[in-house]
Computed example of a mutant assay.
Amino acid sequence: MTAYRTVVVGTDGSESSLRAVARAGALAGACGATLVIACAYLPTDPDDRDVRGAADVLKDEAYQVMGSSPAEETVRTAHERASGAGAGDVRTVAVVGSPVEALLDVVKRESADLLVVGNRGLAGIKGRLLGSVPADATRRSAVDVLVVHTTD
């Protein structure tokens, strides 16, 4: 078996997701792999009914970043965390869309061979309605998935 060459990790800026970023950074550094840090976000166009509807459902959840500027700040912070954990070659990308769709798209575009996600997902009724990012990503990914235990 060969070492991973390209690792993708998702972040929403939460401390939990940044723990997954640090683990991905350490793994990428140890393997000499490229680390691609992705943040999915919804545009903040107030005239877009789909965006307003998604924002109403998600409300205060850290699950979805709203707007490109917060997404860019999120990946900058994550880049620092990954570099501090040992990642050498780090790229960042902010992608419009839902977290799972965005991660799977980045994995495909980057020809990644590992996807890293944190184990924290939505709980309660929102989780049942919208799904859990770790569970959905694991189920749908065409590449290996590392689920990092990120909660205390």
Rank of each mutant, 00 (worst) to 15 (best):
L27W: 02
P43R: 15
T44P: 08
G25Y: 00
A20G: 06
C31A: 13
Y4V: 03
A26S: 14
P46L: 13
T44E: 14
A30C: 12
A40M: 07
T11V: 08
G29M: 10
R5A: 12
R5M: 12
I37C: 00
T34S: 11
S17R: 05
A28E: 10
V8H: 07
G10F: 01
D12V: 14
L42H: 08
L42S: 08
T44V: 09
A30V: 01
D48E: 14
V36F: 04
G13F: 03
A22T: 04
G13A: 08
A28S: 12
S17V: 01
D12Y: 07
C31P: 03
T6Q: 08
G10A: 08
I37P: 00
A30M: 10
R5W: 09
V36T: 08
T34I: 07
A20F: 02
P46Y: 06
G29N: 03
G25N: 02
R19V: 06
C39H: 07
G32Y: 09
P43H: 15
D45W: 15
P43A: 15
G29T: 08
A28Y: 00
C39D: 09
V36Q: 00
R19Y: 05
V9F: 05
R19F: 03
L42K: 09
G13Q: 06
V36C: 11
I37L: 03
T44S: 09
Y41V: 10
L18D: 02
V21E: 10
G25H: 00
